[in-house]
């Protein structure tokens, strides 16, 4: 897999984790799991987790900037616009703009690709069929 693509996926997954840990719904479940009802203790735990994620994100961004400084800026731009900086391709469809991507993308699995319609970075899973393959 392209190293930049791998880092963008890791960054995306970390940001999902960050959103999750920040949500009240998730923290209610964690409180139930840990049988911890002390709100201060839970808040402390959440703050520490968010700080650890922030440090990890910084590390990835640094590595990404070494490969190409424009990648992170572009990722952030899309994240600000759409809520995510990279999207999955499922059944040949970009899950950000829901337009069909070229059939040739399927053979380029693992490469850093962008949606020709909306421009977002794409993760194309191996073996997912595009329209071209189905025809």
């Amino acid at each position: 897999m392209d190293p930049a693509l791998e880092k963008l996926i890791r960054l995306h997954d970390l940001e999902k984790m960050e959103e999750e840990i920040s949500s009240e719904e998730y923290m209610k479940i964690i409180s139930k799991l840990r049988q911890e009802e002390d709100e201060e203790e839970l808040k402390k735990m959440r703050d520490e987790a968010l700080e650890a994620i922030r440090r990890e994100k910084e590390k990835i961004i640094k590595e990404l900037n070494k490969i190409n400084p424009t990648y992170y800026n572009r990722y952030r731009m899309f994240k600000n616009a759409y809520g995510h900086g990279i999207a999955q391709v499922v059944e040949g469809i970009c899950l950000n703009c829901f337009s069909r991507v070229p059939t040739s993308f399927i053979t380029q699995h693992g490469k850093l690709l962008r949606c020709p319609n909306c421009g977002i970075f794409l993760y194309v899973p191996k073996g997912k069929k595009t329209e071209g393959e189905r025809l």
Binding site: I9, M17, L33, R34
Partner: peptide, 23 residues
């Protein structure tokens, strides 16, 4: 990574590792 920010081993012999991923 999820485990490194806080173990999902909730005690009493049970763990619930969990994560979301783009892949």
């Amino acid at each position: 990574k999820r485990e490194s920010i806080g173990s999902t081993g909730i005690g009493k012999g049970i763990a619930i590792p969990h994560a979301r991923s783009l892949v």
